[in-house]
């Protein structure tokens, strides 16, 4: 209880400090801290999948993207232009009134109204091909949504490539960084692989694994790997779309075998889900790296 109160208080504190920080770097640092605390809060609420996603994508990769972008926001006039004190006050007032409306509505919903689809998910879990309910919803029961979500990442990558970004200047060789990369990249690779495999029976899965592999790629970029130089190669492009493409082909392909769209044959559901998650992880990691590469470079 005390721990939870402390957690809630520090969430508010880091959020407020991040909004009113004096320079972009400090704001981003506080934002990452906020994200990690939020991940803890999700973990306390027993939502481990959300906690993993928040830590990996919400705090980790978004933080890295913001760090890259903050380089362009270094002077004060820029950050003032995007959010003047009056604009901030206006946004705060809007957010406050929205929060109170939602709080009031939630208060009127405080009595439990029935379990939603959770009992159905547990009843059908054995037919889904995986043992973890979240994965069964994401990759089988509501696979359509996940397919389109991966599509969202593909569109983001297409949009970035269409901007024709300039490459950032090469970095100087840094022996400390190089040593760190040599240690960290294999570890991140193994952890990502584990999360991907774990997704079939416990919290984990493609998005979390993709975030970790993406982090490994970001480290490689920090150490001097120039991703944008590769972005015109067909191999790179194939990696970018292989997740969405495979998922789509499977989803449409099963319909030619007399099934509904995205309906896996029951005996192959488990292995199909594994392969889809594997290629999706690759595409997610590559897309996140493209986002990171773009965040540090300027438009032509």
């Amino acid at each position: 209880m005390v721990l939870d109160l402390l957690l809630a208080a520090s969430l508010l504190l880091t959020a407020w400090r991040s909004l009113y920080a004096n320079d972009p770097l400090q704001a981003v640092g506080l934002f990452v801290a906020y994200g990690l605390l939020l991940a803890l809060a999700w973990a306390r609420l027993d939502a481990l999948d959300v906690a993993l996603a928040e830590a990996g994508i919400g705090a980790g990769l978004t933080g890295a993207l913001l760090l890259g972008a903050s380089r362009h926001a270094a002077d004060r006039s820029f950050s003032d232009r995007i959010a003047s004190p009056m604009m901030r006050a206006f946004l705060a007032a809007g957010a406050l009134s929205l929060t109170s409306i939602v709080a009031l509505a939630l208060w009127s919903l405080r009595k439990p109204r029935g379990p939603g689809i959770a009992p159905l998910v547990s009843a059908k879990l054995s037919e889904s091909g995986v043992k973890h309910p979240v994965t069964s919803v994401l990759l089988n029961f509501r696979s359509w949504d996940t397919l389109l979500e991966i599509g969202v990442l593909v569109v983001a990558a297409f949009s970035i490539l269409a901007l024709r970004l300039a490459r950032s200047p090469p970095r100087k060789y840094d022996p400390m960084l190089a040593a760190l990369v040599r240690v960290m990249v294999p570890i991140l690779g193994v952890c990502g692989g584990y999360l991907l495999w774990a997704g079939s029976h416990r919290p984990g899965g493609a998005f979390q694994a993709g975030a970790l592999l993406g982090a490994a790629g970001v480290l490689l970029q920090l150490a001097g790997y120039d991703l944008l130089a590769d972005s015109a190669r067909r191999g790179f492009r194939a990696l970018l779309v292989v997740g969405f493409g495979t998922f789509l082909c499977v989803g449409i392909g099963v319909s030619t075998l007399g099934h509904q769209i995205l309906e896996y044959p029951p005996t192959q559901a488990g292995s199909l889900i594994f392969w889809i998650e594997l290629v999706a992880t690759i595409s997610i990691a590559v897309t996140l790296n493209l986002l990171y590469a773009a965040s540090g470079s300027g438009a032509t």
Partner: peptide, 26 residues
Amino acid sequence: VSDIFSLYVCLELITLAAVGGTALSG
């Protein structure tokens, strides 16, 4: 689709593709 959450995902996909298209002139 006839599912209010899925509609959200579909609208997001439209938005992102539309924004990417708007930025095409560069």
